[in-house]
């Protein structure tokens, strides 16, 4: 295709290459149904979290005992729980907690893991081996079991649970970045930077980490869904969010006792977990395809 035709097709004449590439990415996302579905779900989650006070018909923690365990109705669309709290309001406020979980875990786990992996991959040698063997040791434990142990040791609270989950996520990022760093360190621009007296941290920060960005981005997106699931699991067994916090996992845990006669207690927060986790996962999948330069054009 001649350049003129390309410009006509995309309406991208007279634009900087960066802008062109950015718009092209947007187009790819737009054409990718899965990505759009993921983005729609995540956007809804964010909007609900931001506007929770406006959207929620009731307070998420106010108890009203005479309305306890009432089934879905016009006044309480998703019913009420064993304390008479409105489940819809609690699910809406729960979105805020979920976002906090996703962002905290991925930021801590991704940052620490990427830096460790890049350092190990760039230095190699003894230091690199030590870092990566420690990562392997962490990976050798089932994630959930290790989370439980750490969260229990730190004491049951949402923040401690988040720390535990972030810790367990570190090796995944470390391994991903490590393998990427091993190939990046052999690039001539790294040698050129060293010949210009660049220090090791400088090279890791300027040349190794930026090259690992796109796979980390994909892993982080998928990791958000997993973090929400793990946090819900910890809350379910009482090691995460404590009542009356409207955390979805904790809500499912409380509703479990009433599941036979009052199904709405556990079902709606459970559905919220499902939808959000799936949303992050399909967005991650789609991002992987979109960011892969071999699949782009």
């Amino acid at each position: 295709m001649c350049p003129g035709a390309a410009a006509r097709n995309y309406g991208l004449r007279e634009m900087s290459p960066w802008m062109k590439d950015f718009l092209f990415t947007i187009r790819l996302v737009y054409r990718n149904t899965l990505a759009m579905a993921g983005i729609a779900i995540i956007t809804c989650l964010v909007l609900v979290a931001v506007f929770a006070p406006l959207l929620a018909p009731y307070s998420p923690i106010d108890i009203s005992l005479d309305e306890r365990l009432s089934p879905p109705s016009a006044s309480h669309i998703l019913g009420t729980d064993e304390m008479g709290r409105d489940i819809l309001s609690r699910v809406i406020y729960g979105a805020r907690i979920s976002i906090r979980i996703a962002v905290t875990v991925v930021t801590i786990g991704g940052a620490v893991g990427s830096i460790l992996g890049a350092t190990a991959g760039y230095l190699r040698g003894r230091m690199g081996s030590i870092i990566m063997r420690v990562m392997d040791m962490i990976l050798a434990f089932p994630a959930l079991v290790l989370c439980m142990v750490l969260a229990a040791a730190l004491g049951p609270s949402l923040n401690n649970a988040l720390l535990a989950i972030a810790f367990v996520q570190i090796p995944k990022y470390a391994r991903l970045v490590h393998s990427q760093a091993l190939s990046l360190r052999e690039k001539q621009y790294v040698l050129a930077a060293r010949s210009m007296a660049a220090s090791t941290p400088w090279i890791i920060w300027h040349h190794i980490l930026p090259g690992c960005l796109s796979p980390v981005l994909v892993l982080a997106t998928m990791g958000m869904g997993e973090a929400i699931l793990l946090a819900a699991s910890l809350s379910f067994i009482g090691l995460g969010a404590q009542p009356p916090e409207p955390e979805w996992g904790a809500m499912v845990a409380m509703g479990r006792q009433y599941l036979m006669d009052h199904w709405w207690l556990a079902t709606f927060p459970g559905l919220a977990i499902l939808v959000v986790a799936v949303g992050f996962n399909i967005l991650g999948d789609a991002l992987r395809d979109i960011l892969d330069p071999r699949l782009r054009r």
Binding site: K187, Q188, Y189, L191, A192, R194, S195, M196, A197, H206, H207, P210, G211
Partner: peptide, 19 residues
Amino acid sequence: SIRGSRIAMIFQEPMSSLN
């Protein structure tokens, strides 16, 4: 402290010498 400021180097393939 010597690299770059007192002895500098340029490489064979300029295309791969820059990030």
